[in-house]
Design a protein around this nucleic acid. Structure first.
Lengths: 244, 244
DNA sequence: GACACATTTTGACATTTGGTCAATAATTGA
DNA sequence: TCAATTATTGACCAAATGTCAAAATGTGTC
């Protein structure tokens, strides 16, 4: 839109570089390893310059969360373009959701981190709103499909439940599961060896429980999964399943 | 068991006091507000003494998580004592789970915090194991009920799924939902106004999806809920629903 | 090209906090 | 009573966040 000046371009480029430096640090070495001195050093600028971009360390973390959330939103949008019956489209979202989680498992660590009140409270309202907008966008895409289902009489929600609350359930399940898979090293010892597969099963059975037609038993959703992967997410699917 | 000496009693008492000081700070003012100087001051001992009890700040946080997890374990055990068909007993666990979440919503913030890798990595293996034991205990209680269900042919799991993986689903849903309810202030704006009720519905429909008999429609589970509350959790239920 | 003015960058500095440890105080038991 | 053991202390160090006056760089004008 706006024709940026060279200075503005350089400024944005450097901002991106800061995030590119911060991400691997926080992912591989954790929150405590991320410090402004180190970022400044790798950036080859002084600390003061980093503070010109981000008023505090926490703001960088939020910016990282926003970045992967945008990635996720884009994948959800692509999945939502799938043409078919409501539950098939929901299955497409499920594919996008799992592919995202497997491509960026660290997203859930960063998101867990940014939600910590003492971190969240130090971030700017502007970026908070940006994260909220991303969330809202994802949720709207999914609840739109629920609306489609209700409209097409593929499903009827229990009295008093709105589509957004059903989406909240799917969201809770995936957020909880993927967060634990990323941070709880006790799971294998507990007998949870294939978490992703389990989540897939739980989501299908939950939708079955709500009576969303066609039920899992009435339709070949694995076929839909294959189709979505090859047609809408060929690169992502290849990356995720290259060694599986 | 062991007859403690006066010194040991005093030591343990002081340890408890440290946790009692730390909890409200971390719950109300957050991670950053919790510092060793402050704890020492309120404890009316020097900082060195606090460090005699806990080798680092992170260890205190883990100790807090263990404490509430033990509370939760105790409630799960009480719920598991409910005598009835398998799904009724699972419903009893659901009651315990929700009561716990409403009594200690901050537990999920502390647990989110303690899972952050850079925090987790600073804690001792001894306490890590203690948390894992608590988790294992809760999970075993619940998977025991799933076993009962399978044994009594109230349900049959999909091929390849073990009871622990079903419990993982319930756990993910509750952990994800209660964590978000505790930390995501955007939910009301998204239309999620009664999160607890939604979780209840999702869990029931998920179990329905797995065909766990008797289905929600075949049995009055609200009656079970009432019974569990009044008979097994009268104090907790009164506390939670005093103003509802 | 010289100059004034605006903008950006810098890194020394103040401050806070986690964590250490030699010195000190208190307790114990013979 | 007194030596030996144990517990407590707080000065001290290191590391990190965040600030800001000064220096450097860039921009427009004559």
């Amino acid at each position: 839109m706006v024709n940026e000046t060279r200075k503005e371009r350089e400024y944005l480029y450097r901002e991106q570089r800061i995030l590119d430096i911060a991400r691997p640090v926080i992912v591989q070495e954790g929150y405590h390893a991320l410090n402004m001195n180190r970022i400044a050093e790798q950036l080859e600028y002084s600390k003061g310059t980093v503070y010109n971009h981000f008023p505090c360390k926490e703001e960088i973390i939020l910016a990282l969360a926003i970045q992967t959330l945008e990635q996720r939103t884009e994948m959800f949008q692509r999945a939502a373009r799938y043409v078919g019956r409501s539950r098939e489209r929901m299955q497409a979202i499920g594919v996008a959701c799992e592919l995202f989680a497997r491509m960026f498992p660290e997203h859930f660590v960063v998101e867990q981190l940014v939600r910590i009140p003492s971190i969240w409270d130090k971030t700017s309202a502007v970026r908070q709103q940006q994260l909220y907008r991303g969330e809202t966008c994802c949720l709207s895409l999914v609840s739109g499909i629920v609306h489609q289902a209700v409209g097409a009489k593929d499903m009827s929600l229990p009295p008093g439940m709105v589509p957004e609350e059903l989406v909240f359930g799917l969201w809770s399940m995936t957020f909880g599961a993927y967060s634990m898979l990323a941070t709880n090293s006790n799971l294998p010892a507990l007998g949870i060896v294939n978490g992703y597969e389990a989540v897939r099963s739980h989501l299908r059975h939950m939708l079955d429980g709500y009576g969303w037609r066609p039920l899992d038993s009435e339709h070949d959703y694995d076929e839909v999964v294959q189709q979505v992967m090859t047609q809408h997410f060929p690169i992502e699917a290849a990356q995720v399943f290259q060694n599986a």
